[in-house]
């Protein structure tokens, strides 16, 4: 029973935190650009306004996939708070990502196809890093369970997995759709790809995408926090610092190309992960 309550509370609280983080994002970004910026709660105003708008569609399936995107993202958050299998969580996150891509492919729209194809390349970039992160955790803990990472007395992961941590920061940039990786869609207007994969979504369904993104922020920051899970407040501070770092990078970096992203994340992210795991394998003797 206890588990159910944890799950329900997480489902309610996560988007509130995510919404506030999105508001902070807009505020800090505005300040960095010399603007005053909207109030912190602006994302919630936007969300409810979008929900109230009338629904327009370019295909039926695009709505179906958006539900898939939302529900699988929520499932990932539930997996995180119930401290279940980290590797499986990453695969479930994959379903969420693929649902979103398929939503983009579901209408005959050049911009949304453009964005969907780029989103796929983003998945190709970050998925191996995330999977190797799970393997790195296994190398360290001998288990894929998040409960083992958070077990009282468990040593923090960061000292032994810091190369993987750097790679995960790269993933964070991609997942939060920040420059230089805001390729499939962007938070900033005036782009040649219009709104990319989100071009054909509007009104309540666009609100659902925003909601999913809030869950996603909480999820990926939660994964970052796992690197220092004992005591957890250190991990949360690290995650928030990483978030602010992403905002700064977003504002000082220009958007790069898709090919560059795949090469860069593989050349830097994958290599860091591989070296980290190879080192752990050698000192632990393949246990």
């Amino acid at each position: 029973m206890n588990q159910w309550w944890i799950a329900i509370i997480a489902i309610i609280v996560a988007p509130i935190i995510g919404g506030f983080l999105a508001g902070i994002d807009r505020k800090i970004t505005a300040r960095l650009q010399g603007r005053y910026g909207p109030p912190i709660v602006q994302p919630f105003y936007d969300f409810f306004k979008l929900l109230g708008k009338s629904r327009i569609a370019t295909s039926r399936m695009q709505f179906v996939w958006i539900y898939g995107y939302l529900v699988f993202m929520i499932t990932c958050v539930v997996f995180l708070v119930l401290k279940l299998d980290l590797l499986l969580l990453i695969f479930l996150l994959g379903f969420a990502g693929i649902s979103f891509v398929l939503g983009g492919f579901s209408s005959k729209s050049p911009y949304s196809h453009f964005g969907a194809n780029r989103e796929l390349m983003q998945i190709l970039s970050y998925e191996p890093v995330l999977l190797l992160m799970a393997l790195g955790v296994y190398a360290q803990n001998g288990s894929f369970m998040i409960s083992e990472i958070m077990k009282p007395g468990a040593a923090p992961l960061l000292p032994s997995l810091w190369p993987i941590f750097i790679a995960v920061l790269l993933v964070l940039t991609i997942k939060l759709r920040k420059s230089p990786f805001d390729l499939s869609t962007s938070h900033h207007g005036h782009q040649e790809l219009v709104k990319g994969i989100m071009t054909e979504f509007s009104g309540p369904y666009y609100a659902l995408i925003n909601l999913t993104e809030w869950y996603e922020i909480v999820l990926v920051l939660g994964i970052v926090a796992l690197f220092w899970a004992n005591p957890l407040w250190v991990g949360i501070i690290i995650a928030l610092a990483a978030f602010v770092l992403e905002l700064i990078i977003d504002n000082i970096a220009a958007r790069m190309t898709v090919g560059w992203m795949v090469k860069f994340t593989w050349a830097v992210g994958l290599v860091l992960c591989v070296l980290n795991i190879a080192y752990l394998y050698l000192i632990k003797g393949g246990a």
Binding site: A57, G104, F105, S107, H113, A116, N117, L120
Partner: peptide
């Protein structure tokens, strides 16, 4: 796989 499924799903309004 996603790329292939995406081609099947593309429809007009």
């Amino acid at each position: 796989w996603a790329k292939w499924l995406g081609r099947l799903l593309q429809v007009l309004p």
